[in-house]
Amino acid sequence: MSEAARMPVIGITTYHRPASWGTWSDVECDLLPSAYAQSVTGAGGVPLLVPPLATAEAADSTVAALDGLIIAGGEDMNPAAYGAEPDPHVTGWVDARDAGELLLLDAAERVGLPVLGICRGMQVMAVHSGGSLIQHLPDAIGHARHAATDGTYSDTDVHVDAACRLASLLPGDFTVASHHHQAVAEHPGFLAAARDDDGVLQAMEAPGERFAVAVQWHPEQHDDAGLFAGLVAAARRYRIR
């Protein structure tokens, strides 16, 4: 099969937590909601789940096998990663996942691998660039509507900057699926690409040719196929190059 014909392989990072099924209870697992993989498949890519990695060598080897990377949603980061003490609302993090995703972003940056960050993934990308987070968004904007309730998503109206790459992939104003109590505060090296009615940063992107885009919402839950199509197209160009 020619390089042009081969489907791009898109790595997707996973949760690392106990899970139960059948007769098994609280087994340590690397897992991910299937909507992520389905969205990649729908865009013409091949999804490959990537569990937390422990070394730079493992991250480099993983990235060498990929054409694109998604840093997926999940739990809060350890605030120590951006030099902060934890807010009382930040009580659960997985250091192995934080470290593994930062190593993957290091490796991806070294070779220019296309990257899409989703929810937590956007926050990880901001911290990787030297940025920081708003640890508990309700304290900053006065409400908790972005977080919805356990097991559900809220609707958030987003406004995309027409001058950004994101505008070629998504409508200028539309409604997204949200579930987050944190947000990006500082994002050095990234351009603000979208905000919501509260002024919260909802998307950011790197300047230049490389596809490095992140959104605070969950595109795998709504029909935001343009983001996955954009990533897969960038992954195909990266592979051929």
Rank of each mutant, 00 (worst) to 15 (best):
178 S>K: 09
136 H>D: 15
216 Q>A: 03
205 E>Y: 11
131 G>H: 07
165 R>G: 02
166 L>P: 00
171 P>D: 09
160 V>W: 02
195 R>P: 06
114 P>V: 02
204 M>V: 13
221 Q>S: 01
141 I>T: 02
194 A>P: 07
211 F>G: 00
101 E>P: 10
207 P>S: 12
201 L>P: 00
188 P>A: 12
154 S>K: 02
158 V>L: 09
158 V>P: 03
216 Q>L: 05
113 L>E: 00
208 G>Q: 05
189 G>N: 12
200 V>L: 10
107 A>P: 03
99 A>S: 14
215 V>Q: 03
156 T>S: 12
152 T>R: 12
149 T>Q: 15
206 A>G: 07
132 S>D: 14
162 A>P: 08
182 Q>N: 09
184 V>G: 10
220 E>F: 01
101 E>Q: 13
168 S>C: 01
204 M>I: 14
224 D>S: 13
221 Q>H: 05
183 A>M: 07
103 L>D: 06
215 V>W: 02
193 A>R: 13
185 A>W: 09
185 A>K: 15
205 E>I: 10
163 A>L: 06
200 V>N: 05
215 V>T: 06
134 I>M: 02
151 G>C: 06
190 F>K: 00
169 L>S: 04
140 A>M: 02
166 L>Y: 05
171 P>S: 06
211 F>S: 05
214 A>F: 05
179 H>N: 13
165 R>P: 01
